[in-house]
Design a protein around this nucleic acid. Sequence first.
DNA 1: GTCCTGTCCC
DNA 2: GGGACGGGAC
Length: 240
Amino acid sequence: MRIASRKITAAGLREIFTRLHAYHGPQNWWPHETLWEIMVGAILTQNTAWRNVERALANLKRAHALTPAALRALPRARLTELIRPAGFTASKPQRLVTLAEFLRDAYADEPANLRGGALETQRAQLLALHGVGPETADAILLYVARQPIFVVDAYTRRIFTRLGIAAANISYHALQTLCMENLASDVELFQEFHALLDTHAKLICTKRAPRCDRCPLAQQCAYQKNLRAVQDRERVAPRR
DNA sequence: GTCCTGTCCC
DNA sequence: GGGACGGGAC
């Protein structure tokens, strides 16, 4: 199906943020958790619903294993059991240990030491770790290191695709660039925008049966119009 | 049963 | 660039 495409502007992107913020309210993600917990969450949430990540984090907390040193000290089988709700037990335990060792070796085991560094240097450091890809690296950079980098995930891609701003197959980097070129380089804005997009995708712009009737972006969204066009064709086509 | 969602591996 | 990886919601 052809997707109507339009060029995003800074004003257009700002309006999307404003509408989402007005509708969903301030998200204020991860305000009360430790920085290390954010790093662990960034790994655990790979291809995984956040609810399952929360279970795994609660298990780690209950086991007093939610510090990098405690995590490194856990027997591997124990670590695997604790994070089981987050799935991918063949890979995620090692990824967590890798991250904990990196933090110890490069940042004196203190996540706050990530702050104030050079963004591109830190991003390359993180991407070099086995099990850390662009989304995980950028989530850590934005929410732990407080670097002004826009985090792209499946929800971001879905919303911008449906809005008609991006092609469905747009690359991570292209969508990130598109957003960053049209937003002020502001850590708080990037943090809040990403959180709002996730909330919006979970509650309104769902993968199947999106609630367009109550969507604050419906007015500027291409999705319903395209859907309507497809439905019309399906209704009309068999008739003749 | 089917869907959801990042990274690695080939 | 297509498959494997896993648990939980629905």
